[in-house]
Computed example of a mutant assay.
Amino acid sequence: MSEQRVASPRTFPTAGEAAFREKVRGLRRWGRWGEDDQRGAVNLVTPEKVREAAGLVRLGLPVSLSRAFPVAPAANNPNPAEHYLRRRVRGEHGEGSVTDYAGVNCHGKATTHLDALCHVWNHDGMWNGRDAAEVVTGDGVTFGGIEQFADGITTRGVLLDVPAFRGASFVEWERQVTGEELDAVARAAGVEVRPGDALVIHSGREAWDRAHPRPWGAPDPDGVYRLPGLHASCLDYFHDSDCGVVVWDMMDAVPNEYGVPHCTHAAIFALGLPLLDNALIEPLAQVCRRESRTDFMLTVAPLPIAGGTGSPVNPIAIL
């Protein structure tokens, strides 16, 4: 998450940061898998869960949930990725090779990436109560880094298609996605969300971009962020559903009634729940509608960056 100027509390009711801290304390799962645990909700992705996911492959159809490597500057991509090529020609017959250099900001609102459990925290601490002042070093984090997921995450994915449920094209800022609505979406689709599942939450980011002059994740012309997305009550749904990872296209709704910079991102340090940000979900939603499917096998493979706070990923849903 990057620093951003949000709408003034004068134009949005606020319950205050202290109320949010109390809410988070009531939900957090510190110590559930031991005081030294660094994998959090991914512990729910058991071998039995992987076998369950593999049994969902019927068509043999893979669908990528990754956006293109974000090399183009944009209003929601102020630090574009770098990609350079170097060509080498050897010998008199023109043999040669070409190599790449790639550099990318692992966070923000353009790169499809997986957040590590060290990524965000509040006054009470990181995941499992760790002190950020002790964990974050110039050479990387010493607790909760992205390398904890080096074996990848393979589990049952469940699509929660909010625009389809609403009969709309995309989520509007004036109507944030609530935890109660996510539950209603699942019940309307006739799908049971089970522990260790990956919740793939479609809010219609591509349709939103087509309907607006500025891409989702960009500030308004006055420099203020007003972003449609998920309400703080989704934290309760994540907690109660016992999901193993959340995959989403729109993220925290901004602003929020608590006046905090990140609201649903608190799932990381409170629930030990890794978040897969900026997913490209529209193609999967289209396939699921065509095939009358709501669940599938999902694989996520982050780079094992030692001490890293996140990693670009190319999530693959397999139907």
Results as ranks from 00 to 15, higher is better:
16 G>R: 06
134 E>M: 02
227 L>Y: 13
296 F>I: 02
128 N>Q: 06
269 F>E: 12
78 P>F: 10
192 E>M: 06
169 S>R: 13
182 L>A: 09
48 E>W: 04
94 G>C: 10
139 D>M: 05
38 Q>C: 02
153 I>C: 03
304 P>H: 14
100 D>Q: 15
172 E>F: 02
297 M>G: 00
181 E>M: 13
216 W>N: 07
278 N>H: 13
242 D>C: 13
295 D>K: 11
206 E>R: 11
312 P>F: 12
35 E>P: 02
262 H>W: 09
84 Y>V: 08
164 A>F: 05
253 A>D: 03
245 V>F: 01
192 E>K: 12
237 Y>N: 00
269 F>G: 06
11 T>P: 00
253 A>K: 08
257 E>F: 01
15 A>W: 03
89 V>I: 15
31 G>K: 06
98 V>Y: 03
62 P>Q: 10
4 Q>W: 01
227 L>V: 09
292 S>C: 03
45 V>M: 12
310 G>A: 15
101 Y>L: 15
252 D>L: 10
109 K>I: 01
296 F>P: 05
209 D>I: 10
279 A>L: 02
41 A>H: 01
82 E>R: 09
120 V>D: 07
209 D>M: 12
55 G>V: 02
67 R>V: 06
316 I>T: 07
183 D>V: 14
272 G>W: 08
277 D>P: 00
203 S>P: 00
223 G>I: 04
305 I>E: 01
9 P>K: 04
72 A>G: 00
154 T>A: 14
96 G>A: 06
190 G>R: 08
44 L>S: 04
119 H>P: 00
37 D>P: 05
8 S>C: 04
196 G>Y: 09
158 V>T: 11
247 V>P: 05
129 G>P: 05
101 Y>E: 10
260 V>S: 08
60 G>R: 13
86 R>Q: 15
18 A>L: 09
250 M>G: 08
315 P>R: 05
96 G>C: 07
107 H>A: 14
299 T>G: 03
310 G>L: 12
212 H>G: 12
85 L>Y: 08
132 A>R: 13
232 A>C: 05
185 V>N: 06
87 R>P: 01
44 L>R: 15
92 E>Q: 14
89 V>L: 14
305 I>L: 14
49 K>N: 01
198 A>H: 12
240 D>G: 02
266 A>W: 05
172 E>Q: 13
54 A>V: 14
257 E>R: 13
275 L>V: 08
70 P>R: 11
310 G>Q: 14
5 R>H: 05
185 V>Q: 03
104 V>M: 10
168 A>F: 03
30 W>S: 07
169 S>Q: 11
264 T>Q: 10
147 E>W: 04
220 D>H: 12
146 I>W: 08
49 K>H: 11
163 P>I: 07
295 D>W: 00
187 R>G: 01
163 P>V: 07
26 G>W: 13
117 L>W: 09
107 H>S: 12
